[in-house]
Design a protein around this nucleic acid. Structure first.
Lengths: 243, 243
DNA sequence: CGCAAATTTGAACGTAGTCAACAAGTGTGG
DNA sequence: CCACACTTGTTGACTACGTTCAAATTTGCG
């Protein structure tokens, strides 16, 4: 919910969905008062940890993943400023997934009891939370469909589009992931990711210069990748008035 | 969240997570008063529909899926009695996924405004909703990891375990899915699903008699499939008192 | 500068997909 | 009650996409 070089608070993220009352703004702001910096590769919480902490990502880019028994890992999603991280850790006795900083990050940690208190006092925000959560589930749905059915080229192309929407301008951005990480997110080997990247380049769909990627033909890339844009807005008009 | 031949209400499902107050029970019961029967294959809501309706599944088994541009489809999840269906349709202007009855079903429809009202009056239930939702996201996460990395045999094996937990006793159940549907859920072709089923049978991991499947060696099947049991309970001890 | 990580390329292999044909089961209408 | 159509399941031969293994090259960092 904002671009990775920018800074976004929880208030910003929620304000994009509904008109917040002053009391709601104050309550949300209380959740991200503290700030902690995390360096590239830093682990915020590890699979199987017992933790009750959640985070708002303020600056940078993070990801969540699970380790597979064969030693590999599956990257589940990427986080951008304004996103809440670690909700699943808060509701399970043991965290099911690892949270890790992709780039240097700033996060605002808060405890799940603060979340409970927020919901108790501002029920409408609970619904927004629920909606945002559901939107993330839908996004994961798209990933599942892509990983299940799409060709390697389409999967890589789709990921590039997603990243360019989040952290680029005019389709140009610095790729913060290694090819191995792209593979772990798309279910491919790093070798094959490499081949697909060069093929996309050769097809004229993207250009690369070092770590900088430029989408040259978004239309064609989106078509080839079966990319679905879910930014087309939630509809939260049915919520009751805020407190 | 019970077995598919049984009947479960929303109250049952929530009561498994927390101690409900009388007022909460009444409020939840109000959501599933009406009952509608749906025949096998019936569509509850179609992708791109504009609907504001949610459902509690009372009896039977249902599924959600998205259609892919190449004509295929990806089955996203299966629903069992006590599960809430259609939340994503309620928060998006257009439903992102189709809801379809796998077996003959009984559902209780309610409008999203009723959900908003519930949350407003019983904020604690909102948190439970959020938690259940998150648990579903985690389950989808496991699917993503499986589809992304696991072998065909492991994917099919994992699905069989999941189904046997939900609708079987002693690892024996009537498979309500065609092999094509299993393929659409696991990202495989029906032909290959067939091969994997017979291979699992030949390995002595399962037995088949018509549509009845019996898990012969759960231990080995779970190991080979990298099955993760997420039933190991949510931790909702941190919620405030109910109203 | 020197080392480790990341990228790039090639060749051989294997898993799963495709195409095709047939068998078995199911429901429908004559 | 049977004939027919249609869906579902089963099997074989061939294909192709992506993996594996290995090695060379480049990049970035201490």
């Amino acid at each position: 919910m904002g671009d990775a070089r920018s800074v976004a608070s929880l208030v910003d993220a929620f304000a994009k969905q509904i008109e917040l009352t002053d009391a709601e703004r104050i309550a949300l702001a209380r959740l991200d008062q503290r700030e902690r910096n995390v360096r590239r590769g830093g682990i915020l919480q590890r699979e199987r940890d017992r933790t009750t902490e959640l985070f708002v990502l303020r600056r940078g880019m993070a990801m969540s993943y699970v380790l597979l028994d064969d030693g590999g890992r599956q990257i589940l999603r990427f986080f951008f400023p304004g996103d809440v991280m670690g909700l699943s850790g808060a509701i399970y006795r043991e965290t099911p997934e690892t949270l890790c900083a992709v780039t240097e990050c700033a996060v605002a940690p808060f405890d799940r009891t603060a979340l409970a208190q927020l919901i108790d006092q501002h029920p409408r925000l609970a619904t927004v939370f629920l909606a945002i959560n559901q939107a993330e589930r839908v996004a994961m749905t798209d990933r599942l469909a892509a990983v299940g059915r799409a060709s390697a080229k389409a999967r890589v192309g789709g990921l590039l589009i997603e990243l360019s929407q989040r952290l680029g301008e005019q389709g140009s951005f610095v790729l913060p992931l290694t090819q191995e990480e792209i593979g772990d997110a798309t279910g491919l080997t790093s070798v094959h990711v490499n081949r697909m990247l060069r093929q996309l380049e050769q097809d004229g769909l993207i250009a690369r210069d070092g770590n900088r990627v430029t989408i040259r033909d978004l239309r064609a890339l989106a078509r080839d990748s079966g990319y679905v844009d879910r930014i087309m807005g939630l509809d939260l008009s049915w919520l009751p008035a805020g407190r």
